[in-house]
Structure formats: structure tokens, C-alpha cells
Amino acid sequence: MSEIILQANNLVKTYTQRSGRFGFGSTQIKALDDVSIALKAGTTLAVVGESGSGKSTLARCLLQLHPFDSGEVLFQGQDLAKLDATSLREMRKHLQMVFQDPFASLNPRMKIGEIVGEGLLIHGLGSKAERQDKAHRMLERVGLEVADTQKYPHQFSGGQRQRIGIARALVLEPKVVVCDEPVSALDVSVQAQILLLLKALQQEMNLSYVFISHDLRVVRHIADEIVVMNKGKIVEQGAVVDVYNAPQQAYTQQLLNAIPGRKAA
């Protein structure tokens, strides 16, 4: 049994939405309703659900990018919300994120070398030469070339940009990476490349992933454990093999039945 590296206990997050005539009224929407998860070191935990289920809110709350109403997030046993700004920033190098849209998540005015090296610069790691060397090696590891550091994001395809996003997250040698729909915007052929890359890097760098996705076929391939969310609540959780083979909840069953091509296969 491996140790638990990231844990969320009873997270609650409520959004207030304007409603009624002219927006004078307001309704409370529970994006996270008593959500608890545990990520084991070196494994992948998938969070699945439909749009509006709260899965992206959970990702952001885990990384303290969103304030939440109550609950706690423990990283290696330490409550992240209790840290002061300096220690939290220090902690962030262990907690990185890969975003969905490789077009929106890279600054178009920065060169690739700067984008990948920025994290090292911010955390003050190494000399200029060391930082550059590290960024180069990371880019090569994700399948790009050293010459690419002088190029801008628009010179790359969607799959290549996602590789840059991954290099940016991993150059800091994090322990936990939260991937928010990292392959949904990509072609299946590119999707397969990125999934295999993420798996290989996990082995090499002993990474733990929180993998947010709506695609149950992708999740089956990458995840060890799964959390199914619906309307802010966890409906079911367990080992991927168990949940796919014998879903306990009607909602999980419904999601699995909706996987395209399942009936025909």
C-alpha cells in the first residue's frame, strides 16, 4: 500500500449565481458538496463527470487556485490552506497543472524556452545556464528540439503545444500534477501519443496524477482509481477495474453505457 500524497477532506464550494428578473435575486450553486478524495503516490486518480459536475472546480481547489468554503487539502500531510503566501509559493513547485486548451494556456508573446524556464526562474532554482540546460533537457524529453526554444507558441501544432505545457509543468520536478482534460482538444492519433508520454513520465519521475476527464475510454487507459462526480457530489469511487466491471451506482452505469461504440463492439 503506497502512501497518500494528496488528500482532500470534505471540500465544499458554493457559487452565487444571479437569477430572477434583472439579476436581483441570487441562487446558491453547490459546485463541490462534501467531496473527499485521496491520491496515492505514483498513481493516477481520474475524476470524471459531465459538464457542471464540479470536476474542474475540484482541480482548482486542490491547487489552492480557488478559495473554498470549508474542508481541507493536505499535501504530504500538511494543510495547504494554513500556509502563508511564501510557504504556499514554495509548495507550488511540487503541485503543477496541465491545462486543456493548448492554444489558450501558452502566452503567445513568450518564446518556448522562456515559457518552460519561467517556473525555474520564479522559484529561483539554479543559475541561468543551469535553468536553460534543464529546460532544454525537459523539452527533449517530451519530444521537442532544443532549436524550438527560440520559437513562439503559434509555430506549433496542438499536440506539440500540449507537449510544451507538459514540459512547463514537469521542469520543476513536481510530485503531483493535476491534468485538466489534457487530451480532449486533440486528435485521437495525437491523444494516444500524449497519453503514452504522460504514462512514461509518471514512471520515470514517480509522478502522481489527478486526471480530470469526461472521456471514459481515456480514463480506462491512464487511471488506477476513479472518482465519478455528478452535480458537485461524489457518486462512486474505487479502483478503475472494479468500477468499470461492476458499477454500483445507476449514474455510473448510465455514463458507461453512453460510451460511444460500446454497444456495437
Binding site: S189, V190, A192, V218, R220, H221, V241, I259, R262
Partner: peptide
């Protein structure tokens, strides 16, 4: 053949192979 080999299946039996 190569394109089909990229598609993950719901059973997780298939080995993914990029093109």
C-alpha cells in the same frame, strides 16, 4: 489500421499505439 490502433477502448485491453 494505425488510426484504429490509437483509439482507447472501454475495456482497457488494447495497447495504444501512436501513428
Amino acid at each position: 489500421k494505425a488510426l484504429l490502433a490509437c483509439v482507447p477502448d472501454a475495456e482497457g485491453k488494447k495497447e495504444l499505439k501512436p501513428i
